[in-house]
Design a protein around this nucleic acid. Sequence first.
DNA 1: CTTGCCTCTGACGTCAACGTCAGCTTTTAG
DNA 2: CTAAAAGCTGACGTTGACGTCAGAGGCAAG
Lengths: 122, 122
Amino acid sequence: MRIGELAARASVSVRALRYYEEQNLLTAERSSSGQRHYPDSAVDRVQLIQHLYAAGLTSRTIVDLLPSFETGEVWAATLDRLSAEQKRVNRKIGELVGIRDRLDVIITKATEAKIAGRSCRD
Amino acid sequence: MRIGELAARASVSVRALRYYEEQNLLTAERSSSGQRHYPDSAVDRVQLIQHLYAAGLTSRTIVDLLPSFETGEVWAATLDRLSAEQKRVNRKIGELVGIRDRLDVIITKATEAKIAGRSCRD
DNA sequence: CTTGCCTCTGACGTCAACGTCAGCTTTTAG
DNA sequence: CTAAAAGCTGACGTTGACGTCAGAGGCAAG
């Protein structure tokens, strides 16, 4: 498939896909006229990349760790980085859960007060 | 306390504190010579701000929602935004847990392979 | 053929949360 | 008193993941 279709199927912009290629996160076959052509598997790859970005990993880190995600094979030197990222992600989950709980408390209180007709201004 | 001490106690930079003031997230008394003076409670406030940033909230959003966090009192219009942020945070937690689990699988496999002496290159 | 959409390669723009530097005043330690 | 440390106000720099625009070429439909 060409870049537009991949962008649509993976829900990212065309620009993002070209950027991923620039960062060596994604490769493409080229047609004789220079257009990029991707296999179906590229959709999953792009979505994985998106999830890793969302988890706070940088392009540089993703480029190092992506092979491990796809092959399951891990170099010894990579294992440390994987563990480091795991710890980082776990810390971030903790932070987010903390905020979510505070939001829960506030929202619950406000909703109860609303039902009771108190302390919820307009 | 002055800005340097607050920065140290809240583990942020002096620049960050001035930036928070610029964004109306933090106010300070001024001495006659113009120096900022903060109450002890500012430490907690700054740490809360940091956590909200870490949760992916923007300055604009924090400035709107911070009063709710501190007073527990919620305007009706604010309640929707709080819920929206809560949903966003919950989605993000889900994403992070997904990544963490994939990291778990990879690391566990790699570690077992290492123990067994297989598929962990150097 | 040509119209209209897709794609290409640069290359500059954006946005948020600060970092950093300059030049100056205030406070503190000895 | 004096020098170092800390504070002040602009104002420009940084970083990452793209957005956007210009100018040119490619491709299926009528």
